[in-house]
Design a protein around this nucleic acid. Structure first.
Lengths: 245, 245
DNA sequence: ACCTGAACACCGTTCAAGT
DNA sequence: ACCTGAACACCGTTCAAGT
């Protein structure tokens, strides 16, 4: 809620007093204020429930007013995504050589949690490469940790792309688990039932792995992914003689 | 129950052909026919352009009729996704031990291409685990190849999840490149310009890697991903003493 | 059993008119 | 410069009524 600025002292040259008794002169909207409200609506209603009209209502304005600050709904969603990413604490880039691998793991897990808790906003970052300030700061942090691990330039660049993709896809999946209709357990139970009902002759591997396929929560899978990925990258470097500094 | 009104007296000025032969008794709709038409609309208009009303128009029926065959639009999109996956040729599961790694790579690349050429349909497979018949067949094929490579059960299960995620995310990205507004080159050029414009002091790693970050097309990145992933999985197995059969 | 047309309750976006 | 209200051109979904 924006609080009206208190008038400090009667300024002689002030052009202010226009006597607007009709309404107590709402302060103008701002991009920041709109984005903050957008995240609130997002959390309450999900990304599909975040409509220009509902957002305007939450801000006590008309839908058309939003177009002064955002070109369209997509533009607004992109801003909301970057706002959400801003909740993610990043490792200090100047910190001395602590455990880069552990830090990268924690950063990745936190990113999935943060993005995944905001009603499917992850969807706007899939299919495009986010370039908002917080997305860039995240990228910079990841590249910094990879560089400290001695990962080469091209692998690091591609790894950033892949990690971003993973974070958003995992976050989106997490979002769907958090929906009203069913928790993670029931989703997993349904999936398991689907696998268990398959004919073993036609789907021998799925049938054999029907338990294994649904084993492990998001954290466990994310850790496995990152470990495997980094092992693979370091193996390749070992082969080509590159060494961590 | 109200008695149906008797047939009204024929209107003499009626120019409308009363005979039913005017229209040759349209055959009833089918799920398969609707899905096929849906993919056509999808290819022409993209996933956001695939509306129940446009699809009905393409089928020369009313939008409401579609709800006899599909519970809602999401249900239809899921069916369209599986239909698209059906275009993907799968390796013969009975083939004798040929190059499993090469086959897996080709399967992955083809999957990205096939799913990516259909107007963003990949989006419906992100955030959920597809369980249509063709999605299951794809999963069975991937698990088969991994098993032939001697990959353990849990890594194989998680790898399937990860590969599915990658295919759909990469396909979605590919779809956005194929949109009318800009080809891949212009998207990449814009991204590169964004990186190049960043202050080097605040984003040293991104600035240093501004060229490297935009190097490599989808194929190259997919190959790198799979190679790295498999290297990592086989390394871990090597550590724990598991051996390919 | 299936299809139709109309209705309902919404959308994003634009724009003349106000302040 | 910003906001408002109304309008435009759409949506997904439901349902009584027809065949």
């Amino acid at each position: 809620m924006p609080t009206p600025a208190p008038t400090p002292a009667p300024n002689p040259g002030d052009t202010e007093p226009v006597s607007r008794r009709a309404r107590p002169a709402k302060p103008p909207l701002t991009r920041a204020g709109i984005v903050a409200a957008a995240v609130d609506v997002l959390d309450a209603e999900g990304i599909d429930g975040l409509t220009m009209r509902k957002l305007a209502q939450a801000l006590d304005t008309a839908a058309g007013s939003l177009y002064v600050y955002f070109a369209n709904r997509d533009d607004l969603l992109i801003a909301a995504y970057d706002q959400v990413l801003g909740e993610l604490p990043l490792p200090d880039p100047d910190a001395e050589r602590t455990d880069w691998r552990g830090q990268l793991t924690e950063l990745l897990l936190r990113a999935v949690t943060v993005v995944g808790r905001h009603g499917g906003i992850a969807r706007v970052a899939l299919g495009t490469i986010p370039t908002g300030p917080n997305a860039l700061a995240f990228g910079e942090a990841v590249l910094g940790l990879l560089a400290r691990g001695g990962v080469g330039d091209q692998p690091a660049a591609w790894a950033l792309d892949l990690l971003t993709l993973y974070v958003n896809a995992a976050a989106l999946e997490h979002s769907t688990y958090l929906r009203r209709d069913g928790d993670e357990q029931s989703v997993v139970a349904t999936l398991h039932a689907t696998y268990a009902a398959l004919p073993a002759e036609r789907y021998p591997h799925i049938h054999r792995l029907r338990e294994t396929l649904v084993t492990g929560d998001g954290d466990e899978r994310a850790r496995w992914f990152l470990d495997t990925m980094l092992d693979g990258m370091l193996t390749a470097q070992h082969r080509t003689g590159v060494r961590p500094t």
